[in-house]
Design a protein around this nucleic acid. Structure first.
Lengths: 161, 161
DNA sequence: CTAACTGCAAACCTTTTGCATTGAC
DNA sequence: GTCAATGCAAAAGGTTTGCAGTTAG
């Protein structure tokens, strides 16, 4: 599997990232150098980043930013509902990945052979959420979909029944 | 949150567990004491167990069974497609939970307030899998659904919009 | 008999925490 | 000025691994 997750958007759309820092300020939370840097890293990322990579990129902006701060900041952003945490089927160990929370929920479809990740959104997901709400009576707050399989470019082994 | 996950089956159905050990033997893999014990623990479990709990229960059968063996055995079972690994939205830290793979995929719907877990299967899931296959061209091998929200018995905070 | 499996202990890796210092508002 | 945020280092928590002894087939 490749070292980085190239993400392809199933329908070619890439929604503009909301300005994280403005939303933090609006929430009455202090705007600091590290938070600014980490927000910028997330906004400029074209793929899912793990903490190590976020730290590396944030340190290009300010080398004194510490790993612990990255963890705390991501926890903060997550608590505010600004980012989502993924683990991508643990295909790359225990590390977690982060992405800015898009307006709509989407599923991650992961090729277990080549590591390619597709994101699926739209009507399929909306209909599913609706069905879950109706069946369970839950008020759904977050959905995590991680789907593994073989992409059209990869040789799939014969089905073990 | 309660210390153990009582699982409620949305439609009252609890499918009979396949006999893990027979499937292991059929796969030409050695049947040993620890594997027998761990398989039995999984088959008798009414809820999702983490490694610590599986180890504890397996040790009731044979006290010499070691944690490392439990990890290795679960990895083996997982590789054979006999069990699934969950993380239940990380609501209980980084530990992973295991369950026997049922014939059909199901979603875990988790109340983030009281920890209750509902399992949803059936037509809703089948239709979703079908839609994903068609949209992506992937051959879907496994799906992990972890949905968080408030169950009907728990007070939901007002929506932050 | 031999390769696969196990128990044990140590190593590993990611994430969290306590504390003194710094900095945003 | 005050309380929140940060850097650092150490601890925690879960999982993996090397190795020598054991065992299933």
């Amino acid at each position: 599997m490749p070292p980085s997750h190239r993400v392809e958007d199933a329908d070619g759309r890439r929604p503009a990232a909301p300005r994280l820092i403005e939303r933090i300020r609006a929430a009455g939370i202090r705007v600091t150098g590290p938070r600014r840097a980490i927000a910028r890293v997330l906004e400029e990322a074209g793929d899912h980043l793990d903490v190590e990579e976020i730290t590396r990129r944030a340190q290009k902006i300010d080398p004194s930013i510490h790993r612990a701060t990255v963890y705390r900041t991501l926890g903060l952003f997550k608590g505010l509902g600004l980012v989502d945490e993924l683990d991508l089927l643990h295909l790359r160990g225990e590390r977690h990945f982060y992405e800015i929370r898009e307006s709509a929920t989407h599923a991650h479809v992961i090729c277990t052979h080549c590591g390619k990740i597709l994101e699926i959104g739209g009507e399929t997901i909306a209909a599913f959420e609706q069905a879950i709400s109706e069946e369970t009576g839950f008020r759904v707050e977050s959905m995590r979909f991680e789907i593994g399989g073989y992409c059209p470019d990869c040789p799939a082994p014969p089905r073990r029944s």
